[in-house]
Design a protein around this nucleic acid. Structure first.
Lengths: 229, 229
DNA sequence: TATATTTGTGTCAAATTAACGCAAAATAAA
DNA sequence: TTTATTTTGCGTTAATTTGACACAAATATA
């Protein structure tokens, strides 16, 4: 077969993080080179000859942000002919999540790096078609928490129940009934309640810590779950 | 930026069709050239320089099978380094549906062409990683009919209710209660019952024709629907 | 004409959901 | 120290939804 094609293949990563104080955030980098030099954009870059797409994402994330991802799945492939001003590039976008502890860590060391977290409600202008990619990712996150316990990936391994509640009501952008929510989540059987109390944060009765049971979750996925809140 | 990459970009199409007699089927072509010459494979091919990915799928489908699709959405991008024996190729796979009338039509003119419908339970050996792509597509179809009325795309515009019931029970591979199913579907408010009777086919009381109301469906999508059967 | 087949319309108990009440355990204010 | 205020844990109850069936009506077929 003759080679007449001249299309580049890139990957981009939309990485979500969460904390109660900063809300749902995504990781952006400040571009060092043209095009869009100095502008904010999604971390990503060109795929190397012998690496898989996933490896490419992980490599780029490490290079550009120093972060190692906790959850990664393919989001969508963007391929409009003129989305890159240089030459035609199709980008396979990946959807990633880091848990709360890593999210906090990067925040502390942000100054040195060119990577920064931005609350999804307060985003800067972005290069390329990254704004559009981001919209697709946010939509995916919103719908995903309704049928997969993906929300747990955003928290630490052990968390207070109110953090989970807070996360869901932030993502769904509406109040949720605390009592009914807890009943529903517990009935899924994927959370273990620990004896330990959560570290105190302000007023109120201290609650137990909870943790996510991965095995129970995998069993659930086989049957298929629906988790309408 | 230096061009060091040498990756080809292709699209593949998984096109579903349905009829009561032949069940859920997908469209395959017999390859005319190496690699996998003479083997069955998904329709598809390399993306041209200035066309979008969707246009590429539509073009390839027309060239290879003569069919025009009724529903098309991106499925997944497959990019393992050695999935094509020639040189590295990533393939953006698309998920398509044709409605029953077109499905029948191709069947009639199959002999001349190299395209053929295969029931998804009785598939031939496939070239490349197309078997894996197919699995992802079938999984998508199975899960999609549970939260989007995508099943209607597989039928004709006007259909007997039993055809819909039959489609769902075929796809879900289990019996469904006809009466409860009808109640649930009708409550979605996206079907209109016509005065006309369905053309008779065998014994039994003749039923009304139904048709899908696209406007009502779009309204429903905004709120989000769940359609657990 | 009797029988089998398919469609249309219900019924009803069980399970689930949504809305809310209230006491217990902590901090914050008086 | 006493009294709010806040947050958690554990309910109750009515309304709704689901799942399992019953049965009559309209047609083809034996």
């Amino acid at each position: 077969m003759k080679r007449t094609q001249n299309i580049s293949v890139a990957v981009d990563a939309i990485v979500f993080g969460y904390s109660k104080e900063n809300g749902v955030s995504i990781l952006l980098i400040k571009r060092k080179y043209a095009p869009f030099k100095g502008k904010w954009a999604l971390p990503g870059g060109f795929v190397e000859e012998k690496e898989s797409l996933e490896k490419a994402v992980e490599r780029e994330l490490k290079e550009e942000t120093g972060i190692k991802i906790d959850y990664l799945e393919q989001l969508y492939t963007f391929g409009k002919p003129n989305r890159d001003p240089r030459n035609r590039t199709i980008s396979v976008a990946y959807f990633g999540i880091v848990n709360a502890s890593k999210f906090q860590k990067l925040q502390a060391s942000t100054d040195a790096s060119e990577a920064e977290w931005f609350n999804i409600k307060d985003l800067p202008a972005l290069g390329f078609d990254h704004r559009q990619i981001l919209s697709v990712a946010i939509e995916r996150l919103r719908s995903k928490i309704k049928y997969e316990p993906i929300g747990f990936e955003l928290l630490n391994q052990r968390f207070a129940f109110s953090e989970l509640e807070n996360l869901y009501s932030t993502l769904l952008d509406r109040p949720i009934d605390r009592r009914n929510f807890k009943k529903k989540v517990m009935k899924l059987g994927i959370l273990e309640e620990l004896d330990e109390k959560a570290p105190k944060s302000g007023a109120g009765r201290p609650g137990n810590l909870f943790q996510f049971n991965k095995n129970a979750y995998d069993r659930l996925l086989i049957d298929g779950m629906h988790f309408e809140i």
